[in-house]
Write a protein that binds this DNA or RNA. Structure first.
Lengths: 211, 211
DNA sequence: TTCTTGTCACCTAGGTGTTAATAT
DNA sequence: ATATTAACACCTAGGTGACAAGAA
């Protein structure tokens, strides 16, 4: 999924947040190696604010502008991969997909979804926690995990898509949005690659205003 | 689900087996209590032949007849509940449903489904296995599990339904078969109860010929 | 003007018995 | 005559962005 994430990131990824909770697209997924096949691990994700700002989208210039200081941060939740805990061998067997993770803007959410502020930027983080079988495992807690950040997965939380190109790329690449496609769905790989080439030449327009 | 199982059992439950694997309906589900909330348990099911016979269905008399000795038994597989292993607290939190379990008649199945012989009778069994944390846990394996058999869940494996009343009860009670219902789906509980009363008076016709 | 919410048609994904054709 | 198989229409269940209405 890396190339798709990069494709979105070049345009400025947006993720919908809803009251009921919305999945991310692309889905965050990882391939693991180097784990102890016989040891237990817990896999989880959380989301860090990328800055202390609130944004707004200027339609006339098709760009994001700073709209002030960040709103109060919601209680920082984490999402445990539902297969946790599991053996290293199990995690390494195939790609691990966080497709059950949902984003919400409902501060009172009681479905365990990740709570984010709309119009704020976030960086997903991935954590692998070794389940230490030792008696005094707490003493080693600080060395029993590893965290990973993939900058191409950062995004703007929104309640509705702002950048039209993001909407089009979601429609083109998310199977559940197939109903909104114009052209032929057949041999979509070619279309994806074409988009790739097209957008890399558009990068100058994509920076976030930093003050 | 017990009353639904009993309803089917009074008619002579049939379960479809297919090459690709078919779920059971009703689904086998249990409510657990008395587990150690902090201990790990594995939950699983297997299927015992109820006798050494092969059956055939006589449509003219609407009854099952013995058609000879049982065919060679397939390799006895087990189905681990996909949430296994998990803490007792987790298992007791809510009803445990074996809705991922599938039955197949394909002797070469490599999807991990339960392999059964069509036209043979089976008794599902449910097992709770305590995951013993002790070093020499093998020595206690014989006392670290408990098995449960619910006779109302026994059934005949079939590739197509034989008893018309079974077909009708499946259609009436399985949400996925709603497309085949004739009457009003509204307030279905009343219909279910009516069927209940109706069929209990029919029991004389339902015995399996024992030789 | 900008942002949020709820409803909707349109999808994916997969669980039903039916049916017709075939096998035994 | 009885048993099996594959294709099928019709469901459940739930993930999409569009859209209109409402809120800030």
């Amino acid at each position: 999924m890396r190339s798709l994430w990069e494709e979105f990131n070049r345009l400025g990824t947006e993720m919908i947040v809803t009251k009921a909770g919305r999945r991310m697209f692309p889905t965050f997924q990882v391939k693991l190696s180097g784990l102890d096949p016989l040891a237990d691990y817990v896999l989880l994700m959380d989301f860090m604010p990328l800055d202390d700002k609130r944004y707004r989208y200027a339609f006339h210039s098709s760009s994001w502008l700073v709209a002030g200081r960040a709103d109060p941060a919601a209680p920082g939740r984490v999402h445990f991969h539902p297969d946790s805990p599991a053996k290293g061998a199990q995690w390494m067997r195939q790609i691990v997909s966080f497709d059950k993770l949902k984003l919400t803007n409902n501060l009172l959410d009681d479905n365990g979804h990740i709570i984010l502020n709309s119009m704020h930027r976030y960086q997903p983080r991935f954590h692998v926690v070794f389940v230490d079988p030792r008696q005094d495992s707490e003493r080693f807690a600080h060395e029993n995990f590893k965290s990973f950040t993939f900058t191409e997965t950062q995004f703007m939380a929104v309640t509705a898509y702002q950048n039209h190109r993001i909407t089009q790329l979601k429609i083109a690449s998310n199977p559940f949005a197939k109903g909104f496609r114009d052209c032929e769905p057949e041999d979509w790989a070619a279309g994806f690659h074409a988009l790739n080439v097209y957008t890399t030449s558009m990068t100058p327009a994509l920076g976030y205003e930093q003050q």
